[in-house]
Write a protein that binds this DNA or RNA. Structure first.
Lengths: 222, 222
DNA sequence: CACTCCCTGACACTCCCCTGACAACCCCGG
DNA sequence: CCGGGGTTGTCAGGGGAGTGTCAGGGAGTG
């Protein structure tokens, strides 16, 4: 699981970010100041960096960071309240890998983070039992042999596998995998689970991975 | 028992919320204005916050609250009448932990509250004697060994175990575990208690967990 | 157009939930 | 000590909600 470092001084915004990101399956480190951020850099796979910080401008931190050889390839995503074109360019040329102006939508943030993680080769892997998911390549392997999964199948499987043991209702899965704007029936989930089970070659009654909890939902076996 | 603070100016809605929530086993504090809410914050484990308030927008209250160090980790669930995607995102990034657009269903509200309490470490696990219940995994263990419980069995056991020592009449259990719309006989409870006792390997006469109080109801042993 | 993927509705089947009946038990008063 | 009424434990079966599965239409893509 990739670790993201969120550098943002305002607690409300930081909390919102933490929520959105952890919900999307990332591990989140937090820092309110440039100093705090510096201490945690070594653990991070990606940095979400606010433009304004109480002790030092975000850009300045970014410069220091790039000069340090250890963090040369660490992806940085800038957050800025300024909407001017000039600022964007400045942020980029000074070393940010991407930027986003507030206010931004959560899906867009997630998409950009995914893109950056992909580029840096740390898109993340999930390995559970004989199942291996490569989020970066969108590819799954079962006991070493490649599986051909569609987008929904992959996303659903990845989501469940990210939280093994935990039960999710169909409604919860629809909201988290399909998105909040999906307006269909809950049975759609069943259909995709069935598809997955077929490709995973598992019997619904003796599941190796995807358990059904009657009246509750689905769960990835621990 | 977790205390929920409901901040909602419309008396009818507030009353409905109080009813649903207390019925679900929560203790409910109420506030009609942001000012009232502020006074009771220190007692709350979670806040259900309406978007619109007479004296101050809910979002504003939320911001103040997040700035105050004491409430940094207090879960807040926003209620909003607006359905636009933009508002949702805004509510979240401004510090709400979750949101719900009116009109919403009671079960969904309860589910989300449960999720939040769980996340903040105030829901989630129940451990009593050799019995351990993990609500989010929907899994029960007796002296370490996993138990296979059905949905009703699990819900009933979880409810009783949440309030050890307290007696509940069959009618009360039906209302709280089965739901207010259940229209059956009270003996149904006995049946499920019997099932549970069998799976818990306990003698009805010498119960380890589920005591019968003749003429009164059932109780989880302290 | 051909193809894939996503979603839905329909149908079959499983298993849980509930009920009704009976047995066992407790608590009374006689 | 006995008997009766009320309460609870237990059993077995029917009904139904929940789930697995299949086939088909529609949207998107090359």
């Amino acid at each position: 699981m990739p670790k993201l470092l969120v550098v943002e001084d305002e607690p409300a915004v930081r909390m919102g970010l933490r929520l959105s990101l952890s919900r999307a399956g990332h591990q989140v480190l937090e820092a309110a100041t440039a100093t705090e951020a510096w201490e945690q850099l070594s653990q991070a796979d990606l940095v979400v960096l606010d433009w304004m910080l109480p002790d030092e401008p975000g850009v300045r931190l970014l410069e220091r960071l790039r000069r340090d050889g250890r963090y040369e390839n660490l992806p940085v995503l800038m957050l800025t309240a300024r909407a001017g074109e000039g600022d964007r360019v400045e942020g980029l040329t000074r070393g940010a890998d991407d930027y986003l102006t507030k206010p931004f939508s959560t899906p867009e943030l997630l998409a950009r983070i995914q893109a950056l993680l992909r580029r840096s080769g740390k898109g993340g892997r999930i390995e559970r039992g004989g199942l291996a998911l490569d989020l970066e390549r969108h590819q799954a392997r079962l006991d070493g042999e490649p599986l051909d999964l569609t987008r929904r199948e992959f996303d659903l499987l990845a989501f469940l596998a990210r939280h093994p043991g935990r039960v999710y209702s169909r409604e919860e899965l629809l909201e988290r995998v399909w998105g909040p704007e999906f307006m269909g029936t809950a049975r759609t989930v069943d259909q995709h689970v069935a598809q997955l089970r077929e490709k995973l070659r598992e019997d619904p009654k003796l599941p190796r991975f995807l358990e059904t909890l009657r009246g509750v939902g689905y769960r990835f076996r621990e």
